[in-house]
Design a protein around this nucleic acid. Structure first.
Length: 875
RNA sequence: GCGGGCGUGGCGAAAUCGGUAGACGCAAGGGACUUAAAAUCCCUCGGAGGCAACUCCUUGCGGGUUCAAGUCCCGCCGCCCGCACCA
């Protein structure tokens, strides 16, 4: 290696390629299934192969890599794999636009992105890589499905879906914009289709209860999942029809409002409504209108509450003298509760609006203390903790609308035979059928004689056919006659393959388990899976807080029930990182300009962005998530080619706490780059002073050497703690601080007489400090750290070296500085021995100039001494 | 509407046990080196006052608890996120 001088710059791109190939050749990061070391499984959410990596990936994978490299150095057997979430619609869209096959497009993207990830220098075990579109992967997914079918965890039923009549496919709710298909622009219809479902509701209560034990998950994510599962305790109350006595069951969580009931509203899809439609044209019309209604959230928000009277009446369950009219309401959901509700206008705003519109009566069920007014335009809705005074039935039974109060009213209904308490969930079963080509085929066959028949396991995988065309809308599988035509696995007669494929969330619901044994002939190898799982640290975006993370929790339970796994929770630790933002340049009017298209001028409020090509001035907009539409993206490849991967990683870990959004700035990257060069110069300047430092710690250290050693041990301790708690920004700050100490120490020291004891102890301490600094840099800037390691004379790899030990004795100082306050205001500080007793501290504090001056002759009333922390003199 | 989070310098942020508010970085200003620039190094850097020693103010706003509050409690204001015809 050449001898660097202070002027020589560190050539990051060149050295990074070198170390990447060294790691690859040594197979440094390939994990063994089972060693006597403790295991640690680090996983970042695998990417969709869209074509190029973006800064969000860089941030995500940089964080995961810090954890992986740190744990490896701490003696763990680390599994840190990478793969591709490779099925999905963009590949089909690309196929339509570019006339390529979705598979070709996907695998080409994977090749590009793999190279990009490799240039980041991540400590990944590439030998375990797979894509979910590999037949070897989806074959095992089909096997899992058949097992789940056997276990009753998968089933088929009719369901209402968003149907795009032009593209001829089901659309997810997110793909319906203003009632129109996002691609075709066609009016979306509601259509009833037979769909495959996974029975996630089977585990509703368990998925909810187990959240309490996920103590290394963000509280926010656990709350979001709890809300999504939406457990509620209520009661099913039958209201009997006055004509034939048949009950209409209404579900409510507020049985205490029964006195205020003034009508019943049923869903347009309710069986009673459906049967009335046969004889009444106006009701049939109303139902048809409701069905055509736009179902997007935004539209529902604005949608008018409308209804039609059925002419039916029911008896009031508690008050035999009263009858209530039955209405059909467009706001009643068939798939929540019983599809029927009783309206209580006095205490529910929506019911009140409805009652006013159709002139229905309004009756109070209770009054709130100090409020005896009749309900006018606003419903009387108490907070859960507020005490209310009931009228009639519940007078004396409940005193509050708390859960205890509600439970008491439920008991009352049950005791009187008027209803049955029920626990309900908002969570619905997971519909997984998609009318798409580029997904995992659902391995079943439709036989005219035997009905729906599961494929035989020996016929798996049911592979996607390659000869498909995308010149027509709809699912190419559906018009592929030879692929569709099969013999029935049961009777051998002519039958048809299922042409729906799985939702791509199925693919990502168990990939973490597959990484344990990616080549296995079964979905997982139990020994490998039980060794590695659960994932110790999972890192990804908050946008997956519900869907992916809930589905994975379900799948793990399903895989336990079907005998594949021996655990229920896949991710012991979860971390959700923030986004990468950038300023925007331009506006809707001027169009948006990429950061490389503009030149920035001026400062503060006078800053302007000039379009380089035209010289036009455009507005500088807000700091927003990097996105193609606003063109405020920075390509990681450019950054890595220019500054190197270490710099990109370092900047992504600096400054902002990892869970918060970080702003990408040119100045910030340059700061990271300067730091890298500074490390390089520091090594170059310090190595001559290290010279032939003794390898063993000298018996006694000079003051300077001891001070440096203490700083080094404190820094290692702080950085370790910061990494373990995933506070990477603090780890970065501690490294900066320690780098400053080493540089200052070097500058402040003079070379003594050659061979002197003092000089030898300094050389030893300096060398030790540089080694420790190198270790600290390792997880974050792994390439330059290897370079420093080599420079320190090692011919081993830092990536395989053990994290340095900390001597606790070096973390404490004998002398310490504590603040001294007078009446709570700092007036001076005291340097005193760490173990000075209270009396000594008090005496010394009262003698300080600043304290004497502040007291100004006043009597001391009291002195509070908190040893090793503070003294407060009360005067 | 329901649930949750956050408000600290010009900026990103530290201070997570109630104990010196602003570590560390960025930006900015001044200086050294240089023919010059870049790079590098040194100094200043929350606000106000003062020649200085130093004093006063300061963690969204208003109260409170405490010897001591960015941190705990009560009440406001603002921003962000999630869920939502959920009965």
């Amino acid at each position: 290696m050449s001898t660097a001088t202070s002027n020589e710059r560190y050539n990051a791109p060149d050295r990074e390629r070198h170390w990447q190939s060294v790691w690859a050749d040594a197979r440094t990061f390939e994990a063994d299934n089972g060693t006597d070391k403790p295991k640690y499984y680090v996983l970042e959410m695998f990417p969709y192969p869209s074509g190029r990596i973006h800064m969000g990936h860089v941030r995500n994978y940089a964080m995961g890599d810090v954890v992986a490299r740190y744990r490896r150095a701490r003696g763990f057997n680390v599994l840190h794999p990478m793969g591709w979430d490779a099925f999905g619609m963009p590949a089909e869209n690309a196929a339509m636009e570019r006339k390529t096959h979705p598979g070709t497009w996907t695998y080409e993207n994977i090749a590009v992105m793999r190279d990009q990830l490799k240039s980041m220098g991540l400590s990944l075990d590439w030998s375990r890589e797979f894509a979910t579109c590999d037949p070897e992967y989806y074959a095992q997914q089909q096997r899992l499905f058949l097992d789940m079918l056997d276990a009753g965890l998968a089933y088929r039923r009719n369901a209402m879906v968003n149907w795009d009549p032009v593209d001829q496919t089901v659309l997810a709710n997110e793909q319906v914009i203003d009632g129109k298909g996002w691609r075709s622009g066609a009016d979306v219809e509601k259509r009833e289709l037979t769909q495959w479902f996974f029975k996630i509701t089977e585990f509703a209560d368990e998925l909810l209860e187990a959240l309490d034990d996920l103590d290394r998950w963000p509280e926010k994510v656990r709350l979001m999942q709890a809300n999504w599962i939406g457990k509620s305790r209520g009661i099913d109350i039958p209201f009997h029809r006055t004509d034939d006595g048949d009950p209409i069951h209404c579900y409510t969580t507020r049985p205490d409002t029964i006195r205020g009931a003034s009508f019943i509203a049923i869903s347009p899809e309710h069986p009673v409504a459906q049967s009335l439609a046969a004889d009444h044209a106006d009701i049939a019309d109303f139902i048809a209108e409701c069905r055509a209604m736009d179902t997007t959230e935004a539209a529902l928000e604005k949608a008018e509450k409308r209804g039609i009277a059925t002419g039916l009446t029911v008896g009031h369950p508690v008050d035999p003298d009263r009858t209530l009219p039955v209405w059909i309401g467009n706001f009643v959901l068939m798939d929540y509760g019983t599809g029927a509700v009783f309206g209580c206008p006095a205490h529910d705003q929506r019911d009140l609006d409805f009652a006013r519109k159709y002139a229905l009566p309004v009756a109070n069920a209770f009054r709130m203390p100090g409020n005896n007014a009749e309900v006018a335009d606003e419903a009387l809705a108490p907070a859960k903790s507020e005490t209310v005074v009931y009228i009639d039935h519940f007078a004396g039974i409940t005193t509050a609308t708390s859960q205890e109060g509600i439970d008491a009213t439920i008991d009352w209904f049950e005791a009187n035979g008027l209803g049955v308490g029920e626990t309900r969930y908002r969570l619905r079963d997971w519909g997984v059928s998609r009318q798409r080509y580029w997904g995992c085929p659902i391995p079943v066959v439709h036989c005219p004689k035997c009905g729906v028949v599961p494929e035989k396991r020996e016929n798996l995988p049911i592979k996607l056919p390659d000869d498909v065309t995308f010149d027509k809308p709809g699912n190419p599988l559906d018009r592929h006659e030879t692929w569709k035509a099969v013999d029935c696995p049961e009777c051998g007669g002519p039958a048809t393959r299922e042409t729906d494929t799985f939702d791509t969330f199925v693919d990502s619901s168990w990939y973490f388990a597959r990484f344990c044994s990616p080549k296995a002939e079964a979905p997982v190898e139990p020994d490998a899976a039980n060794y590695w799982l659960p994932v110790d640290q999972y890192i990804g975006g908050i946008e997956h807080a519900i869907l992916h993370l809930l589905y994975s929790r379900f799948f793990t339970r399903a895989m336990k029930r079907t005998g594949h796994l021996d655990l229920v929770e896949p991710f012991a630790g979860l971390f959700t990182q923030g986004m990468v933002n950038h300023e925007t340049y331009g506006s809707k009017e001027t169009g948006w300009y990429a950061p490389s298209d503009v030149r920035l001028e001026g400062e503060g409020a006078a800053r302007t962005a000039i379009v380089i090509e035209t010289g036009a001035s455009v507005p500088i907009g807000g700091v927003e998530k990097m996105s193609k539409s606003k063109r405020n993206t920075i390509d990681p490849t450019d950054i890595m080619a220019h500054y190197g991967a270490d710099v990109a990683r370092w900047f992504m870990l600096s400054d902002s706490p990892p869970e918060r959004d970080v702003q990408w700035t040119e100045a910030g990257v340059e700061g990271a780059w300067r730091f890298q060069q500074r490390i390089w110069r520091l090594m170059a300047d310090a190595m001559p002073r290290v010279g032939d430092a003794p390898t063993d710690k000298p018996d006694s250290l000079s003051d300077a050497a001891l001070a440096l050693q203490k700083s080094a041990h404190k820094a290692i301790s702080s950085v370790s703690e910061a990494i373990e708690t995933l506070r990477f920004n603090r780890a970065v700050a501690h490294i900066y601080e320690f780098t400053n100490v080493v540089a200052d120490t070097l500058k402040g020291s003079k070379q003594g007489a050659s061979g002197s004891t003092e000089d030898a102890s300094f050389a030893w301490a300096l060398r030790d400090a540089l080694e420790r600094l190198t270790h600290m840099l390792g997880p974050m800037m792994p390439h330059i750290a290897e370079e420093c390691w080599a420079r320190l004379g090692y011919n081993t790899l830092l990536a395989e070296a053990a994290w340095p030990d900390v001597d606790p004795a070096l973390l404490v100082d004998d002398l310490m500085t504590i603040a001294v306050q007078v009446n709570g205001k700092r007036r001076d500080e005291l340097e005193i021995s760490r173990d000075a007793d209270k009396a000594a501290v008090e005496a010394a504090a009262l003698k300080l100039d600043g304290i004497v001056r502040a007291l100004d002759g006043r009597d001391v009333k009291k002195v509070i001494v908190v040893p090793q922390r503070i003294v407060n003199v009360v005067a």
